[in-house]
Every structure is written in structure tokens, then in C-alpha cells.
Nucleic acid binder design. Structure first.
Length: 486
RNA sequence: GGCCCCAUCGUCUAACGGUUAGGACACCAGGUUUUCAUCCUGGAAAUCGGAGUUCGAUUCUCCGUGGGGUCACCA
């Protein structure tokens, strides 16, 4: 358990809302920070001016808060650091030390080089250099908005790298990136874009270093760029953090997540009545497995304690909405009724008018409910309004007069039960007496009572319903039903 | 297409080279029960294919096949 404290981060770009995949990445980082007693930081990577989505940052923060993933320290905004010229300073440093250069190719020149590069990549030849490499344009000449960029400068003969993108297990996962077989990985990639903003490749390396990040847990789409990040760290003379890349979450089909199987904004799950603990529990289990066979973790702390990097899977996992529903139901059952009511009310799934009564109702409803949203139907159902009983359903195939007799007998029997003895058990006994005295079997009487009390085919046990409704209401409903067959 | 990575029931997954290949969700059957739900019991259900190493391969090696990622002035 006592791993050294790790400093991790979640660094979303506000170009879209947070969805399950991103949430899992955030969760893994958070869990690992908690597990090691370290820190979890939040950084907003808002360097792509064109793709910025206005409320994305708000939605992301709200989602994290809803999940219960609190971040340590202030939020870092890359756009703010751009204003402070932080990245430009670092780029300058790299140019000075010969690891970067200002490039000023015209669009035509660029197109031409790219074409030649493509051919070289096909032929697995070293990439033809950008003409600017030789120009030695001083950093001071770099101006944003003039079609100029700053590029990383690979050595003439870059070496192949074997990089671990998942250590902390007996067999570290490694990737092999070789200029001989994959020249494109050794392109002089852009550090500073022509608009003066840094690329992800550049900014995240700097920010992670400044934050003191010890381990980067992120999606595995970055694995093939790892050589760039390592090279950048080496160029600065820094030690690179550990990398832990996790496989993606797939949709029910074979490819990427679709809206219906999980690629929703995280807050949609809130709207649909899922519990944040259940969501966290569920998504943690896509691509991760604890030591034992335990699958249900009712709190984030419990999860954090069980969390380990070794349990992370190497292949993509699929999102199974059915298991989510099951799990949410389990989490719901785990909670006290009062808490469920409070949560349901907070989510506008419930409106409490009589707490004692609500508690009794929920006592019956909770075990047949998957989400808080399901409670809406309960709140609008027969416990809270007179049933719409029809004579047809009440009678079934029987003689109406017979039904009338049964109802009347039941009324009289229950009438005799004093209010103070009106409990589920007592009511059940009374009903048993009715059965005996009328020579009936449950199958005959109960469907009639069910219709009379609820007008629904599937409900909790008759006596449980009566117990909750109370003597007065029960007798009223029976009377009202009896009048239909009178 | 090149490069990198991966491969166990339908799904999520377990199994220091030796297990009747285990669990969970979903599914089916039975039990409890007036119905539904819960609960209990049981069932069906998997090592991608082919070589090799080994006394023995889900596990190690190679080839094939399939899937994923990546090849940007996006992150």
C-alpha cells in the first residue's frame, strides 16, 4: 500500500464535454493520488483557439465535482501561461541550445517538403529537412501571426528508443520507436504554432515538469508520440515522469463509444438518476481489476484503497450499460432510505410531502428500482393518487356479484382491525382469515385486491401496500372498488 | 498502407507452464412467492487459427488472422 507519494494530474482540453473515457482517466489519476497519499492536479489545456467550446471547462469541472474528484492546488490554465510568455521562454532556451529553430517556410515550400517527406516515409528513408533548419533564424525574429513556427530539431541521427509506457508491473509495457522503421516519428514537430500558442507536445511537457508530476496516467493514443516527449525532456536536461497509458473504452459494437452506450456527457448520467459513486465504481472496472473478486465499491475511498496500477488491462474494454444499471441498483440499495430521498429530491426525481409516509413507500420501492429517475414513477404512482380502477379488470372472468362479496368481506374484516394494530403482519393475518372463511385461494382474492388498491398488474405484496396506505385509505379504495360492482 | 500495441464465455475479467479454465453482468431453468422485484439453487456459455519449445501450453517463441492506436501549426 505504501507506495511513494505520486503527483499526478488530469489535463483535459476544453474542446468538448467530459465523457466516460475522460472521466475514467481523471478517476484513475485521482485514485492513484489518493492511494499513494500524493496530489491530484487539474490543468486546462486551452491552447487550441479554434476548437474551444464555451462551457466545456465549466462542464468538466462540474463533472469532476459531481464524481467527487477534488483537485489539489489551483487550476492551471495554459492560456494564462501563454500570456505570460512562459512557453516562448522555454522555446528560446531550446533554440539557444540547438534543440529547436524558427521555421519560416512559405505555404508552397511547406507543401513541397511535406510531399518529399511522405515519399521518404514510404521508402523508410530519413526525412528531408525543412529549409529553415539551415537558416539559423534567431529567436528574436519569431513573430506570431506571420506564418512562422518554432520546431524541435532532432539530431542528425536520432537514436531508436524503447520507452516504458507502463511500469510498476512485473513486465513493463514498452514501445519501440525507431527512426529506421518509423521516420515519421522523428519529424521536426512544431513547438510553437504560428499563432504563438504552444502545441500540446510542448506545453504539457513543460507544465508537467513545473508541477513536479511524477506519473502521467492518460489514454494510450499518446504512446506513439512518446519519443518526442522523452527527447524534449532530454533536451531540457530533465528527467521524464513515468508514463502509464491506459487503453480506450469501446462501445458495445466493435468501435468507438456511441451516444447510447456511454459516450454521453458525464452529467447526463446525473440527469438520468445514476449515483456518482456507482458511475465511478463502474467506469473504474472498465480496464481495471482489483486483486480479489470484489466488484462493488461503495465509496471512492474504498476504491482508492483497492486501486493499483497493476490491475490495469492492456486491451480496450467495452462499456456495458446493463451492468451499470445493475451496479447503480446495488449502490442505491446500499444507501439509507432517507439519503435516497434526499438525493432524489436534489435531482428533482422526488418531491417529499410526508417524510414518514415516503419512507414507508421507499422501503417497498427501493428493491425494484435501478436509478433515481425510476422513483419518479413511484412518486406519481398509486401510493400517491387514487388508482384508476376499471370494472372490467376488477372482475376479470368472475361473476361481478362474487367479486362484490369478496370485497365486502375484506372490508368488514379489516374494519375490525384497530388503527393501532394496523401493521403489515396484522393485515396479512386478517387477509388469511378472509381467505379461510370464504374458502378462497390467494390466486383468486389477491388479484382483485391488487386491482382495487393499485390498478396495476405488478406491485409489492398486497398486505405491504395496505400497511403503507393505512387503514383509512385502504378501506376507501376497497369501498370505491366495491361500488363498481354493486 | 508503414510503424507500435493487443487477443480467455455475448460483455467485464481470474488463473508463479500442471485448475473439472474461476467470478461478475446479461441469459435460461427450478425454488420461495398472489403478481413484480428481491433472495436461494442449478444450467448453458470462452482460451482466434497454425506451427514450434516442453513430459505438459490459456500461459513461452514464430507465422497468420482479427482488433486498437498513430502517422497535424488537435489534443
Amino acid at each position: 500500500m505504501a507506495s511513494t507519494k505520486e503527483i499526478v494530474r488530469f489535463a483535459p482540453s476544453p474542446t468538448g464535454y467530459l465523457h466516460v473515457g475522460g472521466a475514467r482517466t481523471a478517476l484513475f489519476n485521482w485514485l492513484w493520488a489518493k492511494h499513494t497519499g500524493g496530489e491530484f492536479h487539474l490543468r486546462i489545456e486551452d491552447t487550441d483557439q479554434a476548437r474551444l467550446v464555451k462551457d466545456a471547462e465549466e462542464q468538466i469541472k462540474e463533472s469532476l465535482e459531481w464524481l467527487g474528484l477534488k483537485w489539489d492546488g489551483p487550476i492551471v490554465h495554459q492560456s494564462k501561461r501563454v500570456k505570460d510568455d512562459v512557453y516562448l521562454e522555454y522555446a528560446k532556451q531550446l533554440i539557444k541550445s540547438g534543440w529547436a529553430y524558427v521555421a519560416d517556410e512559405s505555404e508552397e515550400e511547406l507543401k513541397e517538403v511535406k510531399n518529399r517527406q511522405k515519399e521518404a516515409i514510404k521508402a523508410k528513408q530519413p526525412l528531408p529537412p525543412y529549409p529553415s533548419r539551415e537558416k539559423n533564424i534567431p529567436f528574436e525574429k519569431f513573430k506570431s501571426g506571420k506564418g512562422m513556427v518554432i520546431r524541435f530539431m532532432w539530431p542528425d541521427e536520432p537514436k531508436a528508443m524503447d520507452i516504458e509506457y507502463f511500469n510498476l508491473s512485473k513486465d513493463p509495457w514498452t514501445t519501440h520507436i525507431d527512426p529506421k522503421t518509423s521516420p515519421s516519428s522523428f519529424e521536426d514537430f512544431v513547438l510553437i504554432k504560428s499563432d504563438g500558442f504552444p502545441t500540446y507536445n510542448f506545453s504539457h511537457v513543460i507544465d508537467d515538469h513545473e508541477l513536479g508530476v511524477t506519473r502521467i496516467i492518460r489514454g494510450d493514443e499518446f504512446t506513439s508520440s512518446l519519443n518526442k516527449y522523452v527527447a524534449l525532456h532530454e533536451a531540457f536536461g530533465w528527467k521524464h515522469p513515468n508514463y502509464n497509458h491506459v487503453p480506450p473504452i469501446l462501445g458495445k459494437g466493435d468501435t468507438k463509444l456511441s451516444k447510447r452506450d456511454g459516450a454521453k456527457d458525464l452529467l447526463e448520467y446525473q440527469k438520468e438518476g445514476y449515483l456518482p459513486e456507482a458511475i465511478a465504481n463502474f467506469i473504474s472496472l472498465i480496464g481495471w481489476r482489483p486483486k480479489g473478486e470484489q466488484e462493488l465499491f461503495f465509496s471512492l475511498d474504498e476504491l482508492a484503497q483497492a486501486f493499483s496500477l497493476e490491475g490495469i488491462q492492456k486491451s480496450p474494454g467495452k462499456f456495458d450499460p446493463e451492468k451499470l444499471d445493475w451496479m447503480n441498483g446495488e449502490h442505491l440499495k446500499q444507501k439509507g432510505i432517507g439519503e435516497v430521498i434526499a438525493l432524489a429530491e436534489a435531482g428533482s426525481f422526488w418531491k417529499s410531502t410526508d417524510e414518514a409516509y415516503d419512507t414507508k413507500v421507499l422501503g417497498l420501492a427501493l428493491e425494484r428500482v435501478k436509478t433515481l429517475a425510476d422513483l419518479k414513477a413511484v412518486r406519481g404512482g398509486f401510493f400517491y393518487k387514487k388508482p384508476n380502477v376499471t370494472k372490467e379488470k376488477l372482475v376479470g372472468g368472475e361473476n361481478p356479484e362474487t367479486i362484490g362479496v369478496w370485497l365486502e368481506k375484506t372490508q368488514r374484516q379489516l374494519e375490525a382491525l384497530p388503527e393501532k394494530d394496523w401493521t403489515t403482519d396484522q393485515v396479512k393475518d386478517e387477509l388469511t382469515d378472509v381467505l379461510e372463511e370464504e374458502g378462497l385461494v390467494p390466486k383468486q382474492l389477491y388479484p382483485v385486491l391488487r386491482e382495487a388498491l393499485t390498478a396495476e398488474p405488478q406491485t409489492p405484496a398486497i398486505w405491504e401496500i395496505m400497511g403503507v396506505l393505512g387503514k383509512k385509505e385502504t378501506l376507501e379504495r376497497l369501498e370505491s372498488a366495491a361500488s363498481l360492482v354493486a
